[in-house]
């Protein structure tokens, strides 16, 4: 036995094998201990989705859609509020080709906010139950109103209203929402003059 240990080859095999075993066990334990909760890809996709919770994609909210995308069950072009920008971001994340927005699920539109014509409201609470983000305030047989800052413009409250007193209006663009825009592309010329001649 001692003689075998003195043999450098045996020793090397033993040491390396021991190390391998040790790290293997360590990795195995940590894989169980530190397993991430849920699918991290779902979180990343959900982060990109606009969180309007409008259900236009055909799923009951943004997270279910994110789960469907992560599972490969849904295309990335079903979210109109996210628009082309959202699709590009999703395509970058998932390393797939960006697709044009699927018109079946709606078209890109400027941001809106729900508005309740309050004197017509009968206080049925149906819209409160429909609102995915708790942005409607009111109680049974009392007037309801929208908390405009919290409204995502999903329009899920419009259909349930029995007296049609909810409408979607364009969100006000306050003055501090103005922003500088990129200068117009200069004649789309991006080559320096000498190179442009060569191309011609």
């Amino acid at each position: 036995m001692n003689a075998a240990l003195n043999d450098p080859v045996v020793l090397a095999v033993l040491v390396l094998g021991g190390l391998g075993l040790f790290f293997g066990i360590l990795l195995g334990i940590s894989a169980v201990l530190f397993r991430p909760k849920g699918n991290p890809l779902v979180e990343q996709i959900n982060d990109i989705l606009p969180q309007t919770q409008c259900g236009q994609c055909g799923f009951p909210g943004c997270r279910p859609y994110a789960e469907a995308i992560a599972a490969g069950e849904a295309q990335i072009n079903r979210c109109p509020p996210g628009g082309a920008q959202g699709i590009t971001q999703l395509a970058d994340l998932l390393d797939v080709e960006p697709l044009p927005l699927n018109a079946e699920h709606g078209t890109e539109a400027p941001p809106t906010v729900a508005y309740i014509r309050e004197d017509e409201c009968i206080g049925c609470t149906k819209c409160i139950q429909a609102c995915p983000v708790d942005a409607i305030l009111g109680a049974a047989r009392l007037m309801h109103t929208i908390i405009a800052d919290e409204c995502t413009g999903c329009d899920l409250c419009v259909d349930p209203c029995p007296v049609n007193c909810i409408e979607m209006v364009l969100r006000d663009q306050p003055t501090d929402n103005w922003q500088w825009t990129l200068p117009a592309a200069p004649n789309a010329v991006t080559l320096i003059a000498t190179d442009a001649e060569r191309v011609d």
Binding site: Q51, C62, P132, W180, L182
Partner: peptide, 30 residues
């Protein structure tokens, strides 16, 4: 002007992100 536009766009995206985070939190709590 390019820099101002880029800064404004980044700030707008950050603002939208914080709004959507808020909506997500409210949705999840609900």
């Amino acid at each position: 002007q390019y820099y101002r536009a880029a800064k404004a766009e980044i700030r707008r995206q950050q603002r939208e992100k914080s709004l959507s985070d808020r909506a997500r939190d409210r949705f999840e709590v609900r």
